[in-house]
Computed example of a mutant assay.
Amino acid sequence: MNAQRKKIIMAEINYWKQNKLLPEHYCNFLITLYSQGDLEQEISATDAVLSKEKKKINTRVIFIQFLYILIAFAVLGMSLKLWTFFFTGKMMLLVGLLIMNCLLWLLAGRLLKLLYFTISGAAGLVLIVIFIMRTVI
């Protein structure tokens, strides 16, 4: 087996050991087997293919989450601008638009399994109900 292939395999085994994907004694055995008893060939787990893919996926997930939040704020901003431009002074229409946005956030949170959208939608609805109760009473 060539040296590059052994290096990749040993990096993967170290990654498994670090993330407890295999018991430590199995990983130690495999490292000893592939290094042929030469412990000076210590390979770090950051060289592992799985580690590099995990970092790439995390960056993509963060970007997608940021995009979802940006879209939610854009929809809220557009609905408020629409109300300001066409329906200024009609408070019930504003409350209806805000309830619609909160329901949309709640639905997005449930469908996309995003806790922050679910919480913000529910909290928005609760605050709107409190606002309505205070203005009526």
Rank of each mutant, 00 (worst) to 15 (best):
M10N: 08
I64T: 10
L21H: 12
V95Y: 10
E42V: 14
V126N: 02
M100G: 15
Q4H: 01
L106Q: 08
S51C: 13
L50I: 01
W105T: 03
L80A: 09
S51Y: 15
L106T: 04
M10I: 04
Q41F: 11
F63V: 12
L98W: 05
K113L: 06
F73P: 00
F85I: 02
I31F: 07
R60M: 06
L112K: 11
F87G: 02
L103Y: 03
T118G: 15
G89E: 07
E12Y: 11
G124V: 06
M78G: 01
L114R: 11
S35D: 00
T59I: 12
A72C: 04
K7H: 06
F131L: 09
G121N: 14
S44R: 01
Y26V: 06
F29A: 00
K113V: 09
K54G: 03
L107C: 05
L82N: 08
A45C: 06
G37W: 09
T46V: 05
N14S: 12
L70D: 05
T32H: 09
F85L: 06
G77A: 15
G124A: 10
A108M: 08
F63S: 05
I71Y: 14
D38E: 14
A11H: 05
L21G: 14
K55F: 01
K56F: 11
Y26W: 13
N101S: 06
R110M: 10
K56P: 00
T46S: 13
M92R: 08
V129A: 03
V75G: 02
I9N: 02
S120N: 01
L80W: 03
R60T: 09
S35N: 11
Q41A: 08
L70H: 07
D38R: 11
G124R: 14
R134E: 13
I137F: 06
Q36D: 11
M133I: 13
D47R: 09
M78F: 11
G89N: 10
S120E: 09
M92E: 14
R110K: 11
G124C: 14
A72K: 01
A108V: 02
L67Y: 11
L67R: 03
L76K: 01
F73V: 08
S35P: 01
I119D: 03
V49Q: 07
M91D: 13
G37T: 05
T88F: 10
I71K: 03
I137K: 05
L104Q: 13
L114A: 00
C27T: 07
Q4M: 08
G121Y: 03
I119W: 05
V75F: 02
A11C: 04
L97V: 06
Q36K: 12
W16Q: 12
E42D: 11
E42Q: 12
R60I: 13
T46N: 04
F86M: 08
L107T: 08
M133S: 14
S79T: 12
N2H: 02
M133L: 15
M1H: 09
E42S: 08
I132T: 15
R5Q: 14
E42F: 10
I71Q: 07
V95R: 05
E40N: 15
L22A: 08
L97E: 04
